[in-house]
C-alpha cells in the first residue's frame, strides 16, 4: 500500500462536487433567460376582442408613438390575480396596458374583471396560445415593455410587484 493517497482521491472529488452543488444552490440564481425579443420589433400577432365592450389587440397597435405594456395573462392563473392591483396602480399613473389572455374564455374573463378590476385598455383573446408562442413567453403572467415604435425594450417574467414599478416606469421612459 505505497500509494495510499490514491484512496483519498474519491473524497476529494466528492468534496469538489458538493462545493459545486452548494454554489449552484445558494447563489442568488437568476433562472430566467432574457428574451431574444428585447431590442426587436414586437412579432406579428392578432388577439381578437375578448369582451364586447373592449377592443382586442394586434401587433399594429404598438407603433403609434405611445410606449405601453403588453401583459400576457389568464383568468385561470392565480398569480395574475395578485398582479391586478399593481397593474391598476400603473394604470392610474397613466400607463397604458394591453392584455392578451391565453387559453381563456370570454365568460371567465368577464368574471375575472368584475372580481378583480380591469387594468387594460385593450384585451385580446389568445385561445390557442399562438400569440404567446410568438412572444416566446413560457408562462403567465409575463409583461413586455414596448416603446412608441413598437419595439420590445424590456421583459418582466412573473408577477409585477410594487417594487418593480420604478424600474418599469424607467424602461417605459427610455425610448
Amino acid at each position: 500500500m505505497t500509494r495510499k493517497w490514491v484512496f483519498w482521491l474519491p473524497v476529494l472529488v466528492t468534496v469538489g462536487l458538493f462545493a459545486m452543488f452548494l454554489v449552484a444552490l445558494v447563489r442568488p440564481s437568476d433562472r430566467t433567460i432574457a428574451s431574444q425579443l428585447v431590442g426587436q420589433p414586437l412579432p406579428a400577432f392578432d388577439a381578437p376582442a375578448a369582451l364586447p365592450e373592449q377592443p382586442g389587440t394586434n401587433s399594429r397597435d404598438y407603433a403609434d408613438g405611445t410606449p405601453r405594456l403588453l401583459n400576457v395573462f389568464g383568468s385561470w392563473c392565480g398569480p395574475c390575480i395578485a398582479e391586478v392591483p399593481v397593474l391598476l396602480k400603473l394604470q392610474s399613473m397613466g400607463v397604458e396596458i394591453n392584455g392578451v389572455a391565453v387559453h381563456d374564455r370570454s365568460e371567465d374573463l368577464a368574471r375575472f374583471f368584475s372580481e378583480n378590476g380591469n387594468p387594460y385598455a385593450r384585451v385580446g383573446l389568445d385561445v390557442q396560445g399562438r400569440a404567446q408562442m410568438a412572444f416566446g413567453s413560457a408562462g403567465v403572467p409575463e409583461t413586455f415593455i414596448i416603446d412608441g415604435k413598437g419595439r420590445v425594450v424590456g421583459q418582466h417574467i412573473g408577477v409585477i410587484t410594487e417594487a418593480d414599478i420604478p424600474d418599469i416606469l424607467k424602461q417605459l421612459g427610455a425610448r
Partner: peptide, 26 residues
C-alpha cells in the same frame, strides 16, 4: 433552498463519511 441545503449536507455526510472509512480501512 433550505431543504436543498439540508439534503446536500446529509448526502455530504454519508458519501464523504463512507469514502473516508474506505480510505482509512482500505
Amino acid at each position: 433552498p433550505k431543504r436543498g441545503i439540508f439534503i446536500l449536507s446529509l448526502l455530504a455526510i454519508y458519501i464523504c463519511g463512507a469514502l473516508i472509512i474506505f480510505a482509512m480501512r482500505v
